[in-house]
Design a protein around this nucleic acid. Structure first.
Lengths: 368, 368
DNA sequence: GTATTTGGTAAGGTGACCTAACTAGAACAT
DNA sequence: ATGTTCTAGTTAGGTCACCTTACCAAATAC
């Protein structure tokens, strides 16, 4: 057995807490930090010295304060603290956000999709987007890249997992390999729905949380006990494989119910939305039944505090009320069901959060 | 924000690691501990001094060693380190195990069940069992009591949750209230299937693990990322509420399929087992379909490394092969499906583990 | 101009860990 | 039998991350 807790984790935790506090408040003095975090003034001074030394924080000019005594030195996020890059890769192309370490998005870039199944075009677009992002890089080092991918990803190897009938076969690339020569920062890769869940969880704040995505594919992101649940093989949330009402999977039944596309193994989102907008009662019934199956399954298995519906179909306004009603009749758990609020941007928000967390954690542990 | 990590967590972690190492090896010298854990010899001596001072460890006589140099002082679990009490309360009565802090069971007690729905008899039996256990108490203080209950339990309040149609209505008692005047140690209460999962997980060692119980009731225990998942409202694993093939829940469908008892809202285990033993093809098909629905749902939602089947019906030998086959056809995840090995004793084993963990953790943090 | 209030530093202490160098005691070699 | 060699454990002293207490510094209030 190895050392359980090296002494330095204390220091890293302190530095992290103070850094987060500064970022959360924009501009603070050390005295305010001490009062807010409970650390002693000398400890705060020591930690802030490390953080400014590493460039993560910077002293700023004095500030008019209504208060009485001496005006203190204010600190804020360092100008060259660095940045993170969030990239989303899906059927609608490649999109990136460059954000500073406070999570503020500075630049956006995108490229249209190549043809369906055209992996070469996708790789080119990914490299082009990252190249543009690097060309307009904010000050300071790039500390982490997080890539959102519309395919399952292995939790430890970051290898993309090929499933039979994936709606996004061109996405079977290894972003870390593709970007290896462009970028030295660590490249984190995760499933788009997992990242959307991470983002929506951040808005809701529930520590036990599920995000159900209904669009071209069916997906689920789970956040339990302050951690994203990715599954032993990266296949947690692959709810297309939930059992349907027959012997087939839910995804297969939806396809057989006339929601599949003829040109790809995914749902025909446009057709579904049209049917819902036109108050097609059969379409509504089928979708409500499918979404209810998903929500009921998740509730029965992990009993989250909140379930949010997302994706172009999941956020359709006609869906929520009947699903809630069906759940109330079916399940004894008072789990809340609602719409997600971040829309198509959820995965990018989640990627920023993932990259940020990694960036700050490593930066803080590497301090002098 | 409060202090993130008090310095003393380091000490507690060290003491805990060394205590566990001693328990795991029976008798060890400090030098061996230092080598095995990576702590320095002075640190080990210091920690062992605290642990012996608190009675958790004790020095033992010298031991023949084939080695060359000086013979060291051997340490083992202290004679008066204390004990924990695991209690199971279900339809077959009340049963208790008294175990020392190494988890070795020292005494067993039990009482037959009262009549169905007779809460008064149940309370009496519970108090009688605990009274007997206290009468034959091992040396040292009782450090924790864990109660396994065949009903869902709220994760933080330990309140038992009443579900409509529970097969065990007489279990709607608060064990901590019932035992308050008998016992001063903390009383932990948890669902029997959760505890069974904890126990089976300990045998298997997978860090992402599900336990499916099929008996009078349907239940699921989940262990993800080194933690038991209890759900926001204590209803995680209530898989009777999974959607079935129709609009009803799986439990309702099983009942409608002729497996329900006329005298209680639960499955007729004797009838099911008889049907399976008699190679009743329809019964087998219905059960395989139901169990497959459960395993497939769990796999699709959380993708565990291993799923074990437990309970009188779940461990029936005719079930495993067809369920595995159906899963292979249905799910892309290479999740392993197997039988649990602890049988009806799983919840008691789990209760011991739960009580032990709590006992050792608190004992170690309270050291001088 | 002095009192008050607030920001920050200096000095010194504590607890949990470390390494290096020692003593204690047994087994083996000659 | 006596020294060598090996293992167990202690002592001494260092480091690191935190703490408290006391002080200095600089602003506003009166």
């Amino acid at each position: 057995m190895e050392r359980a807790l090296p002494q330095s984790v204390l220091r890293a935790a302190t530095d992290r807490a103070l850094f987060d506090e500064v970022v959360g408040r924009d501009r603070v003095t050390r005295a305010e930090l001490a009062a807010a975090t409970g650390f002693s003034k000398p400890t705060v001074s020591e930690s802030v010295r490390r953080l400014t030394g590493g460039g993560l924080l910077a002293a700023t000019g004095p500030q008019e304060t209504g208060r009485r005594g001496r005006v203190g030195t204010f600190y804020e996020l360092g100008a060259a603290a660095g940045w993170v890059l969030a990239v989303e890769v899906d059927q609608s192309g490649v999109q990136s956000w460059s954000a500073d370490l406070a999570g503020r998005v500075r630049h956006r870039h995108e490229r249209p999709p190549g043809g369906a199944g055209d992996t070469g075009a996708l790789v080119d677009a990914l490299r082009a987007v990252v190249t543009s992002a690097l060309a307009t890089a904010p000050a300071g080092p790039l500390r982490a890249v997080a890539v959102s991918l519309a395919n399952p990803v292995h939790p430890t190897t970051h290898e993309v997992i090929a499933l039979p009938g994936t709606p996004f076969p061109e996405g079977l690339v290894s972003p870390s390999a593709v970007l290896a020569d462009l970028v030295t920062a660590p490249v984190l890769v995760d499933n788009d729905v997992n990242l959307a869940a991470l983002a929506e969880q951040g808005s809701v704040g529930a520590s036990s949380f599920a995000y159900v995505y209904v669009g071209a594919g069916l997906g689920l992101g789970l956040y339990l006990g302050d951690r994203l649940v990715r599954g032993a093989h990266g296949l947690a949330g692959e709810i297309g494989y939930l059992p349907g009402s027959g012997p087939r999977t839910l995804a297969a039944e939806l396809a057989a119910d006339g929601f599949g596309r003829s040109d790809a193994p995914s749902n025909d989102v446009a057709a579904v939305l049209e049917a819902l907008d036109g108050h097609d009662r059969r379409a509504l019934a089928v979708l409500v039944s499918a979404v209810t199956r998903v929500v009921a399954s998740v509730t029965a298995v992990v009993d989250p505090e909140v379930v949010l519906l997302g994706g172009p179909v999941g956020t359709h306004p006609t869906l929520l009320a009947p699903v809630r009603e069906a759940m109330a009749a079916l399940s004894p758990s008072p789990t809340l069901v609602d719409h997600g609020t971040l829309g198509v941007l959820a995965p990018l928000h989640g990627a920023v959060r993932l990259a940020l967390d990694h960036a700050v954690r490593t930066a803080v542990t590497a301090l002098p």
